[in-house]
Amino acid sequence: EDYYQILGVPRNASQKEIKKAYYQLAKKYHPDTNKDDPKAKEKFSQLAEAYEVLSDEVKRKQYDA
């Protein structure tokens, strides 16, 4: 799945936009606030993985290549 789609940001998003999108979605899908939703944990880990790659310039360049 596309990391940009997961975070809901365009491919040319700035680091600030990526961070903002991640924090909004992380708050929304955090397992502690969605105890009754088994998919929230999965969504949250996808968000974390996408953010880890896109927030790191080197990893992001490799991902975009």
Score class of each variant (00 low, 15 high):
Lys41Trp: 15
Asp64Met: 02
Lys19Pro: 01
Ala65Glu: 15
Asp37Cys: 06
Gln62Ala: 14
Ser45Met: 14
Tyr63Leu: 03
Leu47Gly: 03
Ala21Met: 08
Lys19Ser: 15
Glu17Met: 13
Val58Leu: 12
Lys61Val: 05
Lys20Gln: 15
Ser55Lys: 09
Lys28Gly: 06
Ser14Thr: 15
Tyr3Lys: 03
Ile18Leu: 07
Ser55His: 06
Tyr29Trp: 10
Gln15Val: 12
Thr33Arg: 12
Gln46Cys: 07
Asp36Ser: 10
Lys39Met: 12
Glu42Lys: 11
Asn12Gly: 06
Tyr3Ile: 03
Arg60Met: 01
Lys28Phe: 09
Val58Asn: 14
Ser55Arg: 08
Glu57Ala: 09
Tyr23Ala: 12
Lys59Trp: 04
Ala65Trp: 07
His30Glu: 08
Ala21Trp: 03
Arg11Leu: 04
Tyr22Glu: 00
Glu1Trp: 10
Ser14Arg: 07
Leu25Val: 04
Tyr29Lys: 04
Lys20Val: 14
Asp2Met: 04
Lys16Arg: 12
Tyr4Cys: 01
Arg60Asp: 01
Lys61Met: 07
Lys41Ser: 13
Glu49Trp: 09
Arg11Asn: 06
Lys20Asp: 15
Glu52Val: 08
Tyr22Phe: 13
Tyr3Trp: 06
Asp36Arg: 07
Val58Ile: 12
Arg11Trp: 08
Pro10His: 12
Asp56Thr: 02
Pro38Gln: 09
Pro10Glu: 12
Asp32Tyr: 03
Asn12Tyr: 08
Glu52Tyr: 10
Val9Asn: 00
Lys41Gly: 10
Pro38Ser: 08
Tyr4Glu: 00
Glu17Val: 08
Lys27Leu: 13
Gly8Ser: 06
Ala40Glu: 05
Leu54Asn: 00
Glu1Tyr: 13
Tyr22Val: 02
Tyr22His: 03
Lys28Ser: 08
Gln5Phe: 11
Ala50Cys: 04
Lys16His: 15
Lys27Thr: 14
Gly8Thr: 03
Tyr51Arg: 02
Lys35Met: 12
Lys39Ala: 14
Lys61Gly: 08
Ala13Gly: 03
Glu52His: 07
Tyr4Gln: 00
Asn34Cys: 09
Val53Asp: 01
Ile18Asp: 00
Asp37Phe: 05
Ala40Val: 09
Leu25Asp: 02
Ala40Thr: 07
Asp36Leu: 10
Leu54Trp: 01
Ser55Thr: 05
Lys20Tyr: 14
Tyr63Asn: 02
Lys16Ala: 15
His30Leu: 09
Thr33Glu: 12
Lys59Tyr: 04
Lys35Ala: 14
Gln15Ala: 13
Ala40Arg: 07
Lys20Ile: 15
Gln24Ala: 14
Asn12Ser: 11
Glu52Lys: 10
Glu17Tyr: 07
Val9Ala: 02
Ala21Asp: 00
Glu42Ser: 09
Tyr29Asp: 03
Ala50Glu: 00
Ala21Cys: 05
Tyr22Ala: 03
Lys28Val: 10
Glu57Pro: 15
Arg11Glu: 04
Asn34Ile: 12
Ser45Gly: 09
Gln46Glu: 06
Glu1Ala: 13
Ala26Cys: 10
Tyr29Met: 08
Tyr23Val: 15
Leu47Arg: 02
Asn34Glu: 07
Ser45Cys: 10
Asp2Ser: 12
Asp37Leu: 05
Ala21Ser: 05
Thr33Met: 13
Ala48Asp: 05
Glu57Cys: 08
Asp64Lys: 01
Asn12Phe: 08
Asn34Tyr: 04
Arg11Cys: 07
Asp36Val: 05
Ala26Thr: 11
Tyr29Asn: 05
Arg11Pro: 06
Glu57Gly: 05
Asp32Ser: 13
Ser55Cys: 05
Arg60Pro: 01
Pro38Met: 13
Arg11Ser: 05
Ala26Ser: 11
Lys41Leu: 14
Gln5Gly: 06
Ala26Lys: 13
Gln15Gly: 09
Lys35Tyr: 10
Ser14Ala: 05
Asp56Leu: 02
Ala65Pro: 04
Leu7His: 01
Glu17Leu: 09
Ala21Val: 05
Asn34Phe: 08
Asp56Tyr: 02
Ile18Ala: 00
Tyr51His: 04
Val53Arg: 02
Lys20Phe: 14
Tyr22Thr: 01
Lys20Trp: 15
Glu1Thr: 13
Pro10Lys: 13
Ile18Glu: 00
Lys16Val: 13
Glu57Ile: 10
Glu1Asp: 11
Ile18Lys: 00
Ser14Ile: 05
Gln46Gly: 05
Glu42Pro: 04
Val53Lys: 03
Val58Gln: 12
Tyr23Arg: 12
Lys35Cys: 09
His30Pro: 05
Ala65Cys: 11
Tyr63Cys: 02
Glu42Gln: 12
Gln46Pro: 03
Tyr51Ala: 03
Asp56Gly: 01
Lys39Gly: 12
Asp56Cys: 04
Leu7Trp: 00
Ile6Trp: 07
Ile6Ser: 04
Ser55Leu: 04
Lys39Pro: 05
Leu7Thr: 00
Gln24His: 14
Asp32Lys: 09
Asp56Ile: 03
Leu7Cys: 02
Glu49Arg: 14
Lys19Leu: 14
Gln46Tyr: 10
Ala13Val: 05
Asp36Trp: 11
Phe44Glu: 03
Lys41Asp: 07
Gly8Cys: 07
Glu42Val: 11
Val53Trp: 06
Lys27Ser: 13
Lys28Tyr: 08
Lys28His: 08
Asn12Glu: 06
Leu47Tyr: 05
Val53Ala: 03
Glu52Asp: 13
Lys43Gly: 04
Gln15Asp: 10
Ala65Gly: 09
Lys28Glu: 10
Ala65Asp: 15
Gln5Cys: 13
Ala40Leu: 11
Lys27Glu: 14
Lys59Gln: 06
Asn12Val: 06
Arg60Ile: 01
Leu47Ala: 06
Ser14Pro: 06
Glu1Leu: 15
Pro31His: 10
His30Gly: 10
Lys20His: 15
Ile6Tyr: 04
Ala13Asp: 00
Gln46Val: 12
Asp32Gln: 09
Tyr3Asn: 02
Tyr4Ile: 00
Gln62His: 10
Ile6Asn: 03
Ala65His: 11
Arg60Lys: 07
Ala21Leu: 03
Lys59Arg: 13
Ala13Asn: 00
Pro38Lys: 07
Ile6Phe: 05
Lys19Cys: 10
Pro31Arg: 07
Lys43Glu: 05
Gln24Phe: 15
Glu17Trp: 11
Lys28Trp: 07
Lys61Trp: 05
Gln5Val: 10
Ala65Arg: 07
Ser14Cys: 07
Lys39Val: 15
Ala50Met: 03
Ser14Asn: 09
Ala21Arg: 09
Gln46Phe: 10
Leu54Pro: 00
Asp64Ser: 02
Glu42Cys: 11
Ala26Asp: 03
Gln62Cys: 10
Lys27Phe: 10
Ile18Gln: 00
Ala40Asp: 05
Gly8Val: 03
Asp64His: 03
Lys61Ser: 06
Leu25Tyr: 04
Ser14Lys: 07
Arg11Ala: 05
Ser45Val: 11
Pro10Leu: 09
Gln62Ser: 08
Lys41Arg: 15
Leu54His: 00
Arg60Ala: 01
Ala26Leu: 14
Leu7Gly: 00
Gln46Ile: 11
Tyr23Cys: 07
Tyr4Pro: 00
Asp32Ile: 11
Pro10Ile: 04
Val58Thr: 10
Gln24Lys: 13
Gln24Pro: 04
Ala26Val: 13
Gln46Leu: 12
